[in-house]
Design a binder for these strands. Structure first.
Length: 558
RNA sequence: GCCCCCGUAGCUCAACUGGAUAGAGCGCCGGCCUUCUAAGCCGGGGGUUGCAGGUUCGAGUCCUGCCGGGGGCGCCA
């Protein structure tokens, strides 16, 4: 148990002893937080404020009593408690507590912060799923960075994550790609709804592109695009467990790519089965010559078409079958990562999911907001059809994988981001990622200077020594280190890997302050040096872990 | 018209799902390298959290209504 959760437990127990009993109304607020000012202690708790109404005493009175309990429970690890403001309980911890906390971090080793999820789940995480009709854009890069980092965070928190890329290799857009390839090769104007980008000319051998039929060209074009997409993702450090072909859901498979799909074998009749299941559930009806799904009865605005008058199935129908297929593979939870332009699609997907008997809570859709591109101060849109795209490859080439990932993960998925390419180029050297990496490299340098032998001796010594008189910077750094566990839980539960980026930066800042104020190698007495070497090691590992969750390298030197 | 997301320092974004005096980075001004990495450090300026109400001990966060930006409301994907 980490020092922090132990402390948390002590606070809860103390509150319980005072008569708080239950959890209060509604969701329980965090009972421990890091206060904004040092005057407010190392940690503060609002339990008294939450609990006072139910026990019928004033918050300050309750806080006093909880404080008494804590004094008994924590003994000499607690320096003092204060009741402040409307009833906050401020805890001032003794150096002994900090020493114990550091030991805890070091004992956990590389697994510090790991496996704290309440219950590990088997999760299918689908992300990027870009159409195989062109190169990946910067927007896809955001999805890739987000999804991959989320997967890492979830895994670290104790879940099992299956990464999946859904390929829309079926339908009109694929045909349009074929037409565009041919038109381009023949020097004819590309059709209005076709793909205008220059890359189209390079997808298929020109000679072939002039002569082959559209079907064939579409197939070749998709294959070429996919190859490139996979290569780009590889460069970006993102790998998928399954590439799932939409065409594999249909009984006839014109694009033929499904052989590579893990799902290929059993998927063929999935679409037919899904439709039959929906029909059996009484969720479909025929009207105006089309087949409709009653999604409006399950929270959607209106009913949706599954099968057109022409007899062709809609994309929606495929997607339903796809989700049913995922469910049949035994995942406890599905997470779909979609772009903001698809948010209108969420209600119908969830409705269909429920119509098929799916647990509404088990299907989660995360919407990632747009990336707006600026070039020379001008807003440019990214449309594959219009061809004015900035590719992920270009971004990687300009600023590198680490800077790109850190930049894209630096903001919440819930907010639109602006990418000014010119600025990104100019400022890539100022990217905060280097600050974090620099702190890591600096620690490596300090540890090198001390030498491996001295470091391992320090670790042994650390188990025995008493608490040295700590510098404020040391306490601040340890508090930040200890916070990592809950940051991981937070990031996992809220599907918010950007918190890890923020945390990494804060940890690096805290270390830099420590580095400024506290000499490590050669510190006197030797116990103090041992303590600080241990602190450096713990910090280095935690930075490396945090960067690893972001898919960013942690260099030994810079 | 209806629905969803966003609005926080000059710019890009945080803020521990309701906590105390809203924080970082970049940019701007001024200082710091015979001492474990100056990709660094220290100091300074910068805010009515879009606006108006409401809920309560306490609101950037929750509720209502406006304003502004984006997206959605296809037998497109």
């Amino acid at each position: 148990m980490s020092a922090l959760s132990e402390l948390q437990g002590a606070v809860r127990a103390a509150a319980g002893a005072v008569g708080a009993g239950g959890e209060g109304k509604g969701r329980q607020a965090p009972s421990l937080q890091r206060p904004p000012k040092p005057d407010f202690g190392d940690y503060s708790s609002n339990v008294a404020l939450l609990v006072a109404p139910t026990v019928g005493r004033s918050p300050r009175e309750v806080a006093e009593q909880v404080g008494e309990q804590l004094r008994d429970a924590l003994g000499e690890r607690l320096e003092r408690v204060e009741v402040a403001g409307p009833g906050f309980l401020n805890l001032f911890l003794a150096d002994q507590w900090f020493l114990a906390a550091l030991r805890g971090v070091l004992e956990a080793g590389d697994r510090f912060g790991a496996g704290e999820a309440a219950a590990g789940e088997r999760i299918n995480l689908e992300f990027v799923s870009a159409n195989p009709t062109g190169p990946l854009t910067v927007a896809h890069g955001r999805h890739a960075a987000y999804g991959d980092s989320l997967a890492r965070v979830l895994e670290f928190a104790g879940h099992r994550v299956h990464r999946e890329f859904y390929i829309n290799d079926y339908g009109t857009q694929v045909r349009r790609l074929g037409e565009s390839i041919r038109a381009r090769a023949r020097g004819e104007p590309v059709p209005q709804d076709g793909y205008q980008g220059d890359y189209v000319a390079d997808l298929v051998d020109p000679q072939l592109a002039r002569e082959a039929d559209v079907e064939e060209l579409a197939r070749l074009g998709v294959a070429a695009c996919l190859e490139e997409i996979e290569a780009t993702l590889e460069r970006f450090g993102v790998r998928f467990d399954t590439w799932f072909f939409e065409s594999s859901l249909h009984s006839s498979r014109p694009s033929g790519g499904s052989a590579e799909s893990e799902a290929g074998g059993g998927a063929a009749e999935t679409l037919g089965r899904a439709l039959a299941d929906l029909e059996r559930a009484g969720a479909v009806y025929r009207a105006d010559g089309a087949l409709w799904l009653r999604t409006s009865e399950l929270g959607d605005d209106r009913d949706r078409v599954l099968e057109r008058t022409s007899g062709e199935h809609t994309y929606f129908a495929s997607d339903i079958a796809y989700h049913q297929h995922k469910r049949a593979r035994g995942f406890e939870r599905l997470i779909d990562v979609w772009g903001a332009d698809h948010h209108g699609y969420v209600a119908r997907m969830k409705a269909a999911w429920q119509a098929l008997g799916g647990d509404p809570d088990a299907l989660e859709v995360v919407i990632v907001q747009f990336v707006h591109l600026l070039e020379r101060g001008e807003r440019t849109s990214m449309s594959k059809r219009q061809g004015n795209i900035v590719t992920l490859d270009e971004l990687i080439e300009e600023i590198g994988v680490d800077a790109a990932r850190f930049f894209l993960l630096g903001r919440s998925h819930d907010t639109t981001v602006e990418v000014d390419l010119d600025l990104a180029r100019e400022e890539s050297a100022e990217n905060p990622v280097y600050y974090v990496q620099y702190a890591h490299a600096r620690i490596a340098s300090v540890l090198r200077k001390a030498g491996a032998q001295r470091v391992s001796q320090a670790l042994e010594r650390l188990g025995e020594l008493g608490p040295p008189a700590l510098d404020p910077a040391e306490r601040a750094l340890i508090k930040r280190l200890v916070a990592f566990s809950e940051e991981v839980v937070e990031a996992a539960e809220r599907r918010a890997p950007h918190r890890i980026a923020a945390y990494a930066l804060e940890l690096a800042q805290e270390f830099t302050a420590f580095y400024r104020d506290c000499r490590v190698v050669g510190a006197e007495p030797p116990d103090l040096e041992a303590f600080r070497l241990g602190l450096c090691l713990a910090t280095q590992r935690t930075i490396a872990t945090a960067l690893g969750l972001l898919g960013v390298a942690a260099p030994e030197s810079m």
